[in-house]
């Protein structure tokens, strides 16, 4: 399929990328292109200028924060890089586990974590996972950088806290402490297909964080379920009881894959499974 004519620039620095994004109306950052190129083919998006981030090596690194409390993942890090990262394996292996289930190998070789979350397609893997893990995102603009929590980051489909003339530069994920367990599960189209509903959970010493995907334009925190589990009883019965009412609290869409009521049901089932697995991992 032929794309509409589009201007293209390949900046050599983050500052230059931000200048290009700020100075050109209809400019859009191009990461791996595994979503953007396709939506451009379908004319669902028609940016006037693509700002290719390919040469910004500083966005391709995975490292630890100075105090070692967080894993710092550059926005241009690919899913395949996350799968093969020894830092991720040590500090937050759920990221690699989930990255290895995204689409297929060719897509993982080019698709980036920054692109995945800036697209914020409700079926994407990283948005609910990063909400459950309590990640934060660093956004750079002409006036410097700011950091927002994952919950503040996701605003809608293709709509995040990254404003015009700004660039997501990195994602910070707290390193796993002893007694922490993470899990992500859901119901997919086929064994490795797109999620119909997903749930991510992180069990730690301060309680559990649960985020549901595919039920709204942003990942939904299951706060009522979290509060019912503050006592730390992660038995089958307690977790199932805590999930009761989660479905009714959601307003998911109906589509060809699942009716809204079925998604409400799947949200409870997925949340239970994710919490039980996370709790089992937390016990070690």
């Amino acid at each position: 399929m032929l794309l509409r004519e589009v201007e293209y620039a390949r900046p050599a620095s983050i500052d230059e990328a931000i200048r290009l994004l700020a100075e050109h109306d209809g400019a859009r950052a191009l990461a791996g292109g595994q979503t953007l190129v396709n939506v451009m083919k379908a004319r669902a998006a028609s940016p006037d200028v693509l700002v290719d981030l390919a040469d910004l090596a500083e966005l391709r690194t995975i490292s630890f924060s100075a105090d070692q409390s967080a894993l710092e993942i550059g926005a241009m890090v690919t899913s395949s890089q996350i799968v093969g990262s020894s830092e991720v394996e040590v500090a937050r292996p759920i990221l690699a586990e989930v990255a290895s289930t995204i689409a297929d190998l060719q897509v993982r070789n080019r698709g980036t974590i920054g692109g995945n979350i800036c697209v914020n397609d409700p079926t994407n893997h990283f948005p609910p996972l990063l909400v459950a893990l309590g990640a934060s995102m660093t956004i750079q603009g002409r006036d410097g950088e700011r950091t927002v929590s994952a919950e503040e980051f996701f605003l809608g489909v293709y709509f995040t806290a990254v404003g015009e003339g700004e660039l997501l530069t990195r994602i910070s994920v707290p390193t796993r402490s002893a007694g922490t367990g993470d899990a992500m599960t859901g119901i997919t189209l086929g064994a490795h297909g797109t999620y119909i509903v997903s749930a991510a959970a992180s069990v730690g010493s301060v309680g559990v964080r649960i985020a549901i995907g595919c039920v709204s334009s942003v990942p939904e925190r299951a706060t009522a379920m979290e509060q019912q589990l503050v006592g730390g009883d992660y038995s089958d019965a307690a977790v199932k009881a805590a999930a009761a009412g989660l479905g009714a609290s959601l307003d998911p869409p109906s589509d060809v894959h699942a009716a809204a009521d079925y998604r409400r049901h799947l949200a409870e089932v997925s949340a239970v499974r994710a919490v039980l697995q996370a709790a089992e991992r937390a016990r070690g």
Partner: peptide, 15 residues
Amino acid sequence: GEAVKSCMMLAVQAD
């Protein structure tokens, strides 16, 4: 050195 889908990549990205 990595398998990619050439319909989801611009020629200029291979520069």
